[in-house]
């Protein structure tokens, strides 16, 4: 679905006179292949290149060296851009910056309308999209009165109405409260599972990455780790090198394990932790 081949992208900083002051390599020889239907979380410190990576997937940015292919189409060919943006939609961080229309329905219709989808088909697309994100009841209401989580779901519906094959969430949960965050993550998982939509989830919240099929860790423009949550988070020392953290319960189990307690080195979540405690108790290793 998505293929990066030795992609390089640099931001050039200039002073007042336009002289080059410095160069930041936001993508440094990145090669990666993401398969159709994968749920991929991208982690990394501020400035590690996550957002630059995301913007290459729908052709907002084009690599200066190397190539990026989306659905087999080269993003550096302008003739492909419309098709690529329809295939790979993006949900951004600030819900309020993405809402443009008077009603939820009109907002969702904006994308397909621009693409010239005929009216009756459009109605159907909008309804379907709102149905999928669970907001069909809000159809005629003003988006401004929705909660942050609901606004992000409207933004997701707007992407869905374009019939995409891939959705990129660029820190879409950063400004939401815990309930809103859960709503958005749950919606991403449902779309991935039920509609086989490829999901790229960029986040600072480690526990949101735990449900992914695969995690990419970025540092200084490079992909430095690539594996399942189990593979990635069972290496807390390495994770910390990249200014990230292991989810707290996983970290606790790891430290107990290292201290010789009857605990596996890796537990994914609270349930696995409880499981481990129970089996340690059954084996008589715990009082």
């Amino acid at each position: 679905m998505i293929r990066f081949e030795n992609a390089v992208f640099e931001y050039i900083r200039r002073d007042d006179e336009g002289n080059v002051e410095g160069i930041t390599r936001a993508l440094d020889d990145v090669s990666v292949h993401i398969k159709r239907g994968e749920f991929v979380a991208v982690l990394g410190a501020n400035g590690s290149g996550k957002s630059t990576f995301a913007k290459h997937i729908n052709g907002l940015l084009v690599p200066e060296e190397g190539k990026v292919f989306v659905g087999g189409l080269d993003t550096s060919d302008d003739n492909n851009l419309l098709k690529i943006r329809q295939m790979a939609g993006m949900v951004f961080q600030n819900p309020d910056n993405q809402i443009i229309a008077q009603t939820v329905e009109e907002d969702v219709a904006f994308g397909p309308e621009n693409m010239g989808v005929p009216t009756d088909e459009m109605q159907q697309r909008v309804d379907e999209a709102l149905e999928k994100v669970g907001l069909i009841a809000e159809k005629d209401n003003s988006p401004n009165r929705l909660s942050g989580g609901q606004k992000q779901r409207v933004a997701i519906a707007g992407v869905l109405a374009m019939k995409p094959e891939c959705i990129i969430f660029d820190e879409s949960t950063a400004m939401l409260d815990p309930a809103g965050r859960k709503e958005v993550i749950a919606t991403a998982h449902e779309l991935n599972k039920n509609n086989n939509i490829t999901v790229i989830l960029i986040t600072h919240y480690m526990n949101e990455a735990m449900g992914a099929d695969r995690i990419l860790v970025m540092d200084h423009g490079k992909i430095v780790m690539d594996g399942t949550p189990r593979q990635i988070f069972s290496k807390p020392e390495e994770i910390r090198k990249y200014k990230l953290e292991v989810p707290e319960i996983t970290e606790l189990a790891y430290r107990l394990h290292k201290a010789g307690a009857p605990m596996p080195a890796f537990v994914l979540d609270e349930d696995e932790f409880m499981e481990a405690i129970r089996s340690a108790k059954a084996a008589g290793a715990l009082s």
């Binding site: 990394g44 410190a45 501020n46 950063a174 400004m175 600072h204 200014k243 953290e245």
Partner: peptide
């Protein structure tokens, strides 16, 4: 701390 990475937070 909104929007910062875990260490920054």
């Amino acid at each position: 701390a909104a929007g910062l990475d875990p260490l920054g937070r």
